[in-house]
């Protein structure tokens, strides 16, 4: 089978680039929509026009961000057709459903109420306007549910059957796809991390106002609401992150081993709290995986299996097998996968020849090994190992920042309660850069999820390298640089418009 790896790599680069770009805007939408709903609720409750001015200020920034988030998201969906048509053919029956529901159900909901929220001031009643703002927040996060159901299915494919007649996976149980435990833990973790990021965004701009000595009352109020939301959200993000890691350990043990740099499985396995990987380490060799490391004893066993004494498999166990622990080697899975591919080809040939007896025999043989069919496309066992350094460092950056954020929110809240927040010259610069740190944590999380999933597009079933469209790489190169230029212009436009609105500050409508 001839595979143009340069096409695969360019298609991956294009998706990674456009997805990470899209993710600059999405988490801000997920969280800022709720913050706007809080601000407007306080305005409706108090009738104080200062809260109306504050609400409109944050809503303007929300609107700028929302527009570019939508534009960059549409590009992603088109790529399933242009660059990943084999993927769309093989799993489109399942993967397409949540994407369509997201567009028809959730996005239309948020888009409709978005119009009322933006253009409905003084045209609809106060309460209906407030209801619209809440619906934008609910709709935005409903959109995220469906996208994360689709991504959760890529990480843990459930609720489908393989149709050997068409060589496609078909939806068998919709509820199983929607309530996939990986999708649920992914949604609550991702959505609440958006709450956290939006709270940091509000801290950043409010800190800037306090440093500049402008709009002090508005900045102090914004800081209190954002700090309460951020403190609760960051605690919840840690809780759901633990649950997401548990699901990874159960469903994607290779990804867990990669993000922890664990080569040799252990009982009472430790977590590497911090460390530098040995760049020359390869699966199966005897080198130490780390140049330096700081470990927390037993913690990985507890995180992965909810038991201190449990065994956590390492990369070597998963690649070369571990009889004692009942882990099958990748080489054995590859052999079964190749057999499944051959049996499927025989089945199709027999169908063409109208030889039903031969077809039934081939189908029975195929069904014995069909779960391994994806492995049949791997060239060697080590190909089942994802890149180690990228998910390892991304995971540890995300966790370190995730530990810092609740402390930052607590400090802002503490000094707000004391009434001295505007005088804290050491804290405000931290608030000023916190939005950027939040963005780094956001992108790191997705890098862990998606790079750690390699070499699979659908985990254990469909390798990335056979998912692309049969195109020459130059086609993807052209669109890659085209998107790069357009997206950079969009980002520059957003930053420029936002900075202009921030420098204008809230309008005084009294």
């Amino acid at each position: 089978m001839d595979i143009d790896l340069s096409m695969v790599n360019w298609a991956r680069a294009q998706f990674a680039f456009t997805a990470m770009y899209h993710w600059i805007f999405v988490p801000l939408t997920l969280g800022l929509s709720f913050l706007c709903a809080f601000f407007e609720s306080i305005y409706v409750r108090t009738g104080n026009k200062e809260w109306l001015n504050l609400t409109k200020f944050w809503m303007t920034l929300f609107g700028i961000n929302f527009a570019i988030g939508v534009a960059t998201g549409i590009i992603l969906e088109f790529q399933f057709g242009t660059n990943w048509s084999n993927y769309s053919w093989i799993v489109g029956d399942i993967f397409g459903a949540p994407l369509a529901i997201e567009g028809i159900f959730a996005f239309f909901l948020e888009a409709t109420f978005f119009a009322v929220m933006f253009f409905g001031w003084n045209r609809v009643s106060k309460k209906f306007h407030l209801f619209s703002t809440w619906m934008v927040a609910v709709g935005s996060n409903l959109s995220a549910i469906w996208i994360l159901v689709a991504n959760g299915w890529m990480q843990n494919p459930v609720g489908m059957l393989f149709n050997p007649e068409t060589a496609r996976f078909e939806m068998h149980n919709f509820a199983e796809v929607v309530f996939n435990p990986v999708a649920v833990s992914k949604f609550v973790h991702t959505s609440s991390s958006g709450f956290l990021f939006a709270s940091l965004f509000v801290l950043t701009i409010s800190s800037w106002f306090l440093i500049k000595g402008r709009h002090l009352q508005m900045a102090k109020r914004s800081i209190i609401v954002a700090s309460v939301f951020g403190l609760l959200a960051s605690s919840y993000v840690a809780f759901t992150g633990d649950e997401a890691a548990y699901e990874v350990a159960q469903k994607q043990p290779m990804k867990l081993a990669a993000i922890e740099g664990l080569y040799k499985g252990e009982t009472r396995a430790p977590i590497v709290a911090a460390g530098i990987l040995n760049p020359s380490k390869q699966p199966g060799d005897d080198q130490d995986p780390f140049l330096v490391e700081v470990k927390i004893p037993w913690a990985l066993s507890l995180l992965a299996n909810r038991s201190l004494d449990s065994f956590v498999p390492g990369i070597d166990d998963l690649v070369y097998g571990n009889k004692e622990q009942g882990i099958e080697s990748v080489a054995s899975k590859i052999a079964k996968g190749k057999k499944a591919i051959n049996d499927l080809a025989e089945f199709k040939q027999a169908r063409k020849e109208n030889n039903n007896q031969k077809a039934e025999l081939a189908l029975a043989q195929f069904k014995k090994n069909q779960d391994y069919i994806g492995y049949g496309y791997l060239d060697k066992p080590e190909e089942a190992v994802p890149p180690i350094a990228i998910p390892y460092y991304s995971f540890h950056i995300m966790v370190a920042l995730g530990t810092f954020f609740p402390l930052l929110f607590a400090a802002f809240l503490f000094y707000s309660l004391k009434g001295t927040i505007a005088e804290k010259k050491w804290l405000l610069p931290l608030g000023l850069i916190s939005g950027l740190l939040g963005l780094i944590a956001q992108e790191s999380g997705w890098v862990v999820a998606e790079v750690g999933r390699q070499p699979w597009a659908i985990y254990g079933l469909l390798p990335v390298k056979i998912s692309t469209t049969n195109l020459a790489a130059v086609n993807v190169q052209i669109t890659f640089f085209m998107f790069f230029a357009v997206f950079t212009l969009l980002l520059a436009a957003e930053i420029k418009i936002m900075l202009k609105q921030i420098s204008i500050g809230p309008k005084e409508e009294l």
């Binding site: 609550v188 102090k220 109020r221 809780f239 759901t240």
Partner: peptide, 30 residues
């Protein structure tokens, strides 16, 4: 666990609003 996570998700949103009101009152910024 799924139900607990979804319940807490809603609790975080409601508690954030209620908690903000409480602290804004306390600091006389409401």
């Amino acid at each position: 666990m799924t139900a607990l996570m979804l319940i807490l998700y809603v609790v975080v949103i409601i508690a954030s609003y209620k908690g903000s009101i409480f602290i804004l009152k306390k600091t006389e910024l409401l």
